[in-house]
Design a protein around this nucleic acid. Structure first.
Lengths: 208, 208
DNA sequence: TTGTCAATTGTCAGCGGCTGTCATTAGCCT
DNA sequence: AGGCTAATGACAGCCGCTGACAATTGACAA
């Protein structure tokens, strides 16, 4: 943070983001107008749009941070690990370091509340799923590169990532509708659900 | 189609839908205004919104038809089939009967063109993925009922459906970016990709 | 310190999606 | 034919978002 200008900009952006999240998690996403957010920070509506491409972007900023972090973790996985192992470890490590990533901006509690707002707001959920879709493609390319494959010729990287991503989505939803919102809870759930993929696909579900 | 009123309504709706799809596939989704659509049918903008909840709904109507059909096919699968087998057969049968479902409203070719518009228009893709998410939940419940399981207690139905749905998404995208837009092409791709799931998850990708 | 340049912001006008309201039209039914 | 109800049009207005231009404010050098 060198110049005064930059610091001021950063403060404005932080204030906008914090006000937006606070309003979204109390009044709801649809119940909050961009004017509300701008007014809360005492800037013009136009200024809000200079910091965020849209209302959605503000709502998904925290998610984007954790997603970027997760992608980094996948990239840093030792190349000898099998793909699914690398993904699994990256995710588990990601949950472990969630606090460090988020807390620098807002309390983790706000992140969790916002997560539920996203899941329960159709337009936000849609945007979130689309972003996840993009992330899948990115990770598929990372894995393909690790394994020396061509993503367009060999379907396995995209398939593996799609499967993994599906499990993560189911896990996240189960967690967000459950009672234990601790990081431990989702870590455990993640590990457990990943183990259930095999049985879910091959097993005869009727014999307990 | 009993009364004159009902027939007129149906015709208005059909005209709106066809005009919308025609415009979307030529000028693009964002490049088409609701006023454009209404003007093409010579009704007021207000009337358009009495037939469709929004621009999105018109754009996703064909998809919705095929999805509803697919769900029906899953419901009709004999209960002794293993879950993944039932899903696989329902999908393959769905592609086989695509023509019958769509052609009653518009040429299948328009359906295919619209599919690509959806994939390439961020806001439509987002809405489409969200809808797929809802469909996953519905199908998970169908499978759970078949197998006598509680979806909230046993993660396997949701996991299996999430995996299957992921594979279908990858398949659909691959198909839409390929060269062969025939139904045979996607049927074959579907079968092939489903067979690749196992290897993608467990295999060591490096030994060819 | 001051003057110049550039970056940040506010204001305003306007578009497109969408909704509520109310008057008008058009099909239905006796 | 005339009354009832459903469908439509016209209008006003909210909200998200953008372009354009002017005003403000920090940066930096003379």
């Amino acid at each position: 943070m060198e110049t005064l200008r930059e610091r001021k900009k950063q403060r404005t952006r932080d204030a906008l983001l914090r006000s937006a999240l606070e309003l979204f998690t109390t009044r709801g996403y649809e119940g909050t107008t961009v004017d509300d957010i701008a007014d809360a920070v005492d800037v013009s509506q136009r200024t809000f749009f200079r910091y965020f491409a849209g209302k959605e972007e503000a709502a998904l900023t925290l998610q984007e941070m954790t997603v970027a972090h997760f992608i980094e973790l996948v990239r840093e996985r030792p190349p000898q690990e099998a793909p699914m192992v690398a993904l699994r470890r990256a995710v588990l490590e990601g949950w472990g370091t969630l606090n460090d990533v988020v807390e620098a901006i807002v309390p983790v509690e706000l992140y969790l509340r916002m997560y539920r707002v996203i899941e329960s707001t159709p337009v936000l959920l849609a945007a979130h799923l689309r972003r996840s879709d993009e992330v899948e493609e990115e990770i598929a390319r990372v894995l393909a590169a690790r394994e020396g494959l061509d993503v367009d010729a060999d379907p396995r990287p995209r398939l593996a990532v799609a499967v993994f991503s599906g499990v993560m989505r189911v896990t996240g939803r189960q967690w967000s509708t459950g009672e234990d919102f601790s990081v431990e809870a989702i870590r455990e759930l993640t590990a457990r659900y990943l183990e259930q993929v095999g049985p879910a696909l091959t097993g005869n579900w009727r014999r307990a």
